[in-house]
Write a protein that binds this DNA or RNA. Structure first.
Lengths: 219, 219
DNA sequence: GTAACGCTGTGACTGTTTTCACGGCTTAAT
DNA sequence: ATTAAGCCGTGAAAACAGTCACAGCGTTAC
């Protein structure tokens, strides 16, 4: 319980992840340093926000060179990443599942989707976009062998809870749920719900009554 | 500008949308009423949170019957929904785009994807999962004709900004961005960024250091 | 040398979101 | 009737998140 390693808030972790991907993917080749306001502009946040967030990484910038991109990325990675590559399971090999595989296939990241699962016999026991697909019955076995502790749920809503139960059973520690049904999981499992319906209804609501107020959100 | 209709905060709108979908899709058939703590349990929030959120809808529950589901749904809908059906455009007919169409096809909602767009000639001018797909060159025309003011961006990261510019040009007011690149849009456009990479990195981070702390997030 | 600049890191502040806690109401039971 | 119970609505407090503003420090210019 003694959380000697200072625990970083949810929101900050999200932005650190964003900063890193911006630095890796969108920084001009020839630039080695940048300032808080540069990163802020890229991430659509305030410069003060960037500086505050970076405090949590322990990285210290130079007052007039700014931040050294390489070092900063390394520093964020030391916080966000496992020392080794982090194995992730994907459940559901429909359109959404494949979209997700594409997402991660392209991007350098230490997150690696090492196995996909589906209960549709026609989809399993073959390679989908570079990822081996298994029947769900092998979930437990593979989660253990591959030391997977994070999973993405991309199945239809009515199957989601069942899948979640099996994931918890298999020893998964964190779940990203993309199905439109919220999940019940034990307290000690970290869960992020990402329901597109909800997000879209929000957009529609604020778009309609566009008081000239801008909103923006992540996670 | 006089916002006589009290503007409801972002977060609350999101939860109202969630409450409604829970009530519509997951309420037992024979039950007509429920209490704040019932809805709270379904939505994984506190009962006080539910009551506070519902204040914004104007609906008033009965101290010992609780909330009448039908009336409450109606009341939330009166806030979230357009009187008529709300037309939405989808940009990008890859795996992600199709997944989104499936999402909304199944669910009763007053959001309706009326047109999809793609710049891949092999994907356009045909019906994809019930939605007509057009080349992006027709964006402006169709947005105007169909009175669309909300769009979902589901294209690869490097195409996202270009698409966003065209959407703004065409008069769109709200954008849900699912591409892994944050967008620049004018202040008066409501934008929600929903980057799966970021979410997953967050899950992985908190799953790893699972101090027995639970986290949960939406939108 | 030294003055001016412009950035970082951070304490203090402001604003927002969530929780607490309690008065009031409505029903049911005695 | 009167009492007891239990939930709702909401003011007040607490927790959280983001912004402001400024001291301190390299760097550059003169």
């Amino acid at each position: 319980m003694a959380n000697h390693v200072r625990s970083i808030p949810d929101k900050v972790v999200g932005r650190l992840s964003l900063y890193r991907s911006l630095l890796q993917d969108h920084a001009p080749e020839n630039v080695t340093h940048l300032f808080s306001h540069d990163l802020a502009r890229m991430a659509r946040v305030s410069a003060a926000q960037v500086r505050r967030d970076l405090m949590d990484t322990g990285y210290i910038g130079s007052p007039n060179k700014g931040y050294e991109i390489k070092k900063l990325v390394g520093c964020i990675s030391r916080i966000l990443d496992n020392p080794e590559c982090e194995n992730v399971a994907l459940i559901g090999v429909g359109h959404l599942g494949r979209a997700i595989i594409d997402y991660f296939q392209g991007r350098r990241s230490n997150l690696c989707i090492v196995a996909a699962f589906d209960n549709n016999p026609s989809k399993v026991n073959r390679i989908v976009q570079g990822v081996k697909a298994y029947p769900i019955s092998q979930l437990q076995e593979i989660v253990e062998n591959e030391k997977i502790n994070t999973a993405i749920v991309a199945v239809p809503g009515n199957a989601a809870q069942g899948v979640a139960d099996q994931l918890v059973q298999a020893g998964i520690r964190g779940i990203l749920n993309l199905a439109p049904t919220p999940l019940y999981v034990p307290e000690n499992i970290y869960l992020v719900e990402q329901d597109m319906t909800m997000s879209l209804e929000k957009v529609a609501y604020f778009a309609r009554r566009s008081f000239n107020k801008k909103g923006s959100k992540n996670e």
